[in-house]
Nucleic acid binder design. Structure first.
Lengths: 163, 163
DNA sequence: ACAAGGAAGTTGAGACCTCAAGTATTCCGC
DNA sequence: GCGGAATACTTGAGGTCTCAACTTCCTTGT
């Protein structure tokens, strides 16, 4: 039984028959899993080693660093970093301890909270960015030609969008 | 400061100047991050909900289910599932508690350990597989045409291989 | 043979993430 | 303008993953 192939002993199908992956899909799927794991682990380690933070936290700081006033509402920040409200809340709590982010109240919506990048936080991103970009290049863009980069973008947009 | 764009205020470059991502790379990179996160989270939830296990554990069971004798050495299993020795050891410990996997001693290399899929473990994979495949289709293959599947495979193989 | 170094696995501590539940506030239909 | 539903965010508990340290065993060079 592969990570998506037909089982040696097909189970009783409750509803519609399972559409197993064909050989090409299978290869693509396994390669994708390996690639995603490899890229992710690589970045995770590089950032942890050189900047003392996980990739998720780097993304939070990076998004804040680009936002007007270096400030974003929690819910927007969650969307930009593809993380749940809970994850972001924990993350910002941790970043607050480190002095890289500060929370403020939303001026009009009293349920809301804003995350603001501090000067120390800014310094941390600036320090971490070059090593991170180098790692991204090494893991991804140095391995692909221009056409593949276009294809990767199109495929990724398909997978990221929609219902 | 994006998750890989040039900083508004370039830091002092210690060594070689940082090669920031250009606009196309930037878009590709962000799309890829979102796509990978979305696919991964989707599978994780589906498996947790319907089969009571994380994706990493499913992969362990899946690889064992295909192996001769439903048995693999820990180090090989680690390679196949793209996980560290430590992660795998913890995972197998957990799967052993659930009665899905059993450990045996390697017959010739006395450092070695074998992981063996139990009948209950086999039943668990067989039960989980259809829902998992459906989720993989919904998240990936139903969204791509044949050419894109080929491209995805090639790109993924590039990213997964090499130094 | 034997010691040094490498390889295979395990373990414990700490960090991060998920899930479920909880509080506070805003939105919406009647 | 009121009550129920939806939204925004937080919190605590539990599970998984990482890192570093450790044990045991194989391998290699001399």
């Amino acid at each position: 039984m592969t990570d998506s192939a037909s089982p040696a002993a097909p189970a009783a199908e409750g509803g519609a028959a399972t559409r197993w992956l064909d050989a090409g899909e299978q290869r693509a799927w396994r390669a994708f899993l390996q690639a995603a794991a490899r890229v992710d682990d690589g970045l995770e380690r590089q950032l942890q080693r050189e900047a003392g933070m996980p990739h998720a936290y780097y993304q939070v700081l990076a998004m804040l660093s680009e936002a007007p006033g270096r400030t974003l509402r929690m819910s927007e920040l969650a969307g930009l970093t593809t993380s749940s409200a809970s994850r972001l809340s924990h993350a910002v709590a941790r970043l607050e301890e480190k002095g890289w982010v500060r929370r403020e109240k939303h001026p009009t919506d009293r349920r809301g909270a804003l995350a603001v990048l501090t000067d120390d936080g800014w310094a941390a991103v600036v320090a971490a960015a070059p090593g991170h970009v180098a790692a991204v290049r090494a893991a991804v863009f140095d391995r692909l030609d221009a056409a593949q980069v276009r294809q990767l973008r199109q495929i990724s947009e398909r997978l990221a969008d929609g219902p």
